[in-house]
């Protein structure tokens, strides 16, 4: 029931003045499933924190590039916010379809969701975290959902940034030192925890990319920690 109400709010409040064609309703429950593609970088829900990407509570109506305390925005996203652009239904839809078509220098390395209905489901799901706080507890919190559960002794390793600098020279054949993303994602300035989780997800072949599975596969826990420590400070 809550979802139907929120869908109505979404359509009436956000779309009415913008377009005469009513956008199809999304299903937040389906959206929650599709959103699993996003959780390696984005948290939403109770206690959501910034990960590689910003947390997404309250994204509807927020100026672009302005999530409190998030520091990794591309220049293009910051500029869009400065120009007064806000995340509304149409912009989120365009961004989810092809992030780079809306913000050419975005650091969100995501191929996009081609299926229009799937995008609407995800937007409906995000919408449910953008109402008054009273709505939020009804949804299952996803803030703690991570791709791989790592034991505390791996997560608490303190990496040696000097070793990370040498090991990281191998990463820089593809990933640019200045954080630019021209087809291969930026890996600079990530929270160390997220870097460690991502690398272990490749190492355990939970993430699919064959080059990264190979690169991560031969790194020890200490070496992953060293890389995380080094790139966090770039």
């Amino acid at each position: 029931m809550r979802h139907i109400v929120s869908k109505m709010i979404a359509v009436c409040g956000i779309l009415w003045g913008i377009t005469t064609v009513a956008a199809p309703f999304g299903d937040p429950d389906k959206g929650e499933v599709i959103f699993k593609k996003c959780i390696s970088c984005h948290a939403v829900g109770t206690n959501a924190r910034h990960k590689v990407g910003p947390q997404l509570n309250g994204i509807f109506g927020r100026k672009m590039g302005t999530a409190d305390g998030y520091t990794r925005y591309s220049k293009g996203l910051i500029r869009a916010g400065r120009d007064g652009q806000i995340w509304d239904y149409d912009r989120l839809d365009a961004y989810l379809e092809n992030p780079k078509s809306l913000v050419s220098d975005t650091r969100m390395n995501f191929r996009g969701i081609a299926d229009e209905n799937d995008r609407h489901h995800v937007i409906a799901y995000l919408r449910s975290f953008s109402d008054s706080p009273a709505n939020i507890p009804e949804a299952a919190p996803t803030a703690d959902a991570e791709e791989i559960t790592l034991p505390a002794n791996i997560l608490s390793l303190i990496g040696d940034p000097e070793y990370g600098e040498y090991l990281g020279s191998e990463c820089k054949t593809c990933h640019q030192e200045n954080g630019a993303d021209q087809g291969i994602p930026s890996i600079t300035g990530w929270p160390e925890r997220d870097f460690v989780i991502a690398m272990h997800a490749y190492k355990e072949k939970i993430r699919a990319h064959p080059v990264m599975q190979m690169m991560a596969g031969r790194l020890s826990n200490e070496e992953i920690a060293a890389l995380a420590a080094y790139f966090a400070k770039k």
């Binding site: 820089k172 054949t173 593809c174 990933h175 640019q176 087809g183 291969i184």
Partner: peptide, 14 residues
């Protein structure tokens, strides 16, 4: 293919 374009940008910067 798109990854290869990213690699070209990366290695030439390197």
């Amino acid at each position: 293919y798109e990854e290869s374009i990213g690699w070209y940008a990366g290695i030439t910067a390197d």
